[in-house]
Design a binder for these strands. Structure first.
Lengths: 117, 117
DNA sequence: TAAATATGAAACCTTATGGTATTATGTCAA
DNA sequence: TTGACATAATACCATAAGGTTTCATATTTA
């Protein structure tokens, strides 16, 4: 996996903790899936959940803190869109265990090949 | 990224929520890093943190629920070891956004190439 | 077998979290 | 410019989460 850090102006460097915290809630993970399909206003995101707009807004704020989404003001609306780059710290942290996992996959592959002989 | 699910006896199928929840705490992420180096008893893990063994034990239980570690009884000790396969649900969920991220990288690559012309 | 060791488990405390309701503010449109 | 609309902000509530203390249980080992 290739990781490239790109400095962008106007945003705090997200702590890994903020990213993992943002991902820890099922509603927020669902919001990320939604935003991967379409940019949405807060009201639009809210229609997909059985909770108040205020609650959805809180989730969006936490996602923004984790830098997983970016929010753009457009008139009286706030357009929320996914920030794919924001996942980098998460992938980065997990890569340590990805390697571990790849080793296990290799072992599995070897075992299968041996089994086929 | 290739993902393979392997059924194993004697363990609950971990919900993605349990995995992400387990990863959401910095102490637990630190424990995972420790266990990627060495298998450890609860007491051994505890020496690395400024909290009681009981607290560490709770974290280990949450990690076990998320299937990120496995615990093996040996006499009066409990050997905690990393379960690399347990990360699969996390990688699986994130792969959706990995793709998104790769697309962005491609776009960046294209932009750079175009710029060099 | 008795003492020390390693863990399990329960009760309890404080703070964080996810949710609501209410009120305020800025923007659009007739 | 007034009413409707989209969001912001605050206070508040119930439960979950992270931690401690205390006590019980199972193994070693002297």
């Amino acid at each position: 996996m290739i990781l490239i850090g790109i400095a962008k102006g106007g945003h705090m460097t997200p702590q890994v903790q903020d990213s993992f915290k943002a991902l820890a809630d099922p509603t927020r993970r669902e919001i990320l899936k939604l935003l991967s399909q379409d940019d949405m206003t807060i009201a639009e995101v809210s229609t997909h959940f059985d909770m108040t707009r205020a609650a959805v807004k809180k989730h969006l704020t936490i996602l923004e803190t984790g830098d997983l989404i970016r929010v753009e003001a457009r008139g009286r609306e706030r357009i929320n869109h996914l920030n794919p780059d924001g996942f980098a710290p998460v992938f980065d942290w997990l890569s340590h265990f990805d390697q571990f996992w790849d080793d296990r996959l290799s072992a599995l592959k070897d075992a299968i090949e041996k089994d086929l002989q």
